[in-house]
């Protein structure tokens, strides 16, 4: 059995239902994501179009993150899922440096690496991943790519010439496929990311890897001191006046 994902980008309407379902299901902290939907606008007004690309871990058959992890915190499950054992992770960020898809993050609450696991805990109990269930247009197709009768295998067969993976030149053999994608949407170098500006916010880069309040000394003292509970609310306690107003940024 080799579990895989296929996203039909012709169907995706960018509702971000999958993104929210993933956040809720896996308690993904603010500033982090396991699954995100990226909007890319293509063309010049009035001939423009907007594409939506859900991005998550590719669960590569030859996963660079698994290879570089010094303590096997990243490991394969029998069904092909690349899983994470947070309790073993030492937080070296080697996996973040190795993953060509930028799919791994340093959890700011646990200060360990984490990523999409295809909802391995749900699959174990016979359920579909949360994002698949939430998708209103069934753009997310999940199943066993080694079973010719599975929905995903049938879908791949029906769309032979149009099935793509991200960065095939990396020889990672991803088990995450796209139908209806193009270079502009799947290649991160083929679209412009204007610094300090996007549709709803002006944050393009995180200012810390992991918890930004977890300095060098805190890392050593953490087991002996109460660091205070971190939850989503604590990440929202920032001074709004310290930032430039939205109108000044771009007029949106």
């Amino acid at each position: 059995m080799k579990l895989g994902f296929l996203v039909d980008l012709n169907l995706c309407m960018g509702c971000k239902g999958c993104e929210i379902a993933c956040k809720v299901e896996n308690d993904v902290p603010l500033s982090s994501w396991r699954l995100r939907v990226k909007y890319i606008d293509i063309g010049t007004f009035p001939d423009t179009s907007r594409s939506f690309t859900p991005l998550r871990c590719n669960h590569c058959e030859s996963a660079p993150c698994e290879r570089i992890c010094p303590v096997s915190a990243l490991h394969y499950l029998e069904n092909g899922i690349v899983n994470v054992d947070s309790a073993r992770c030492i937080g070296c960020a080697g996996c973040m440096m190795a993953c060509p898809y930028g799919a791994i993050y340093m959890d700011p609450e646990t200060n360990t690496a984490d990523k999409c696991t295809y909802c391995a805990h749900r699959i174990e109990s016979g359920m579909m991943p949360a994002c698949v269930v939430a998708c209103p247009v069934e753009a997310n197709i999940f199943g066993d790519v080694e079973d010719d009768t599975s929905h995903i295998s049938q879908y791949i067969m029906e769309h032979q010439g149009a099935v793509q993976v991200r960065k095939p030149e990396k020889h990672t053999n991803p088990k995450h496929y796209y139908v209806g994608g193009g270079t502009q949407t799947l290649d991160p170098l083929a679209h412009e990311r204007i610094e300090g500006y996007s549709l709803f916010n002006n944050i393009t880069h995180l200012d810390a890897v992991g918890d930004k309040n977890h300095g060098v000394l805190d890392r050593f003292l953490a087991p002996f001191t109460s660091h205070g509970e971190h939850d989503n609310k604590s990440f929202m306690n920032f001074d709004n006046n310290a930032h430039e107003s939205h109108e000044e940024e771009g007029g949106h």
Partner: peptide, 20 residues
Amino acid sequence: VENTIHATQAVVTLDVALPG
């Protein structure tokens, strides 16, 4: 860093913050 093609005018309009 990016390597865009001018003809496509492809621009990211909504995305998460990336690690530095």
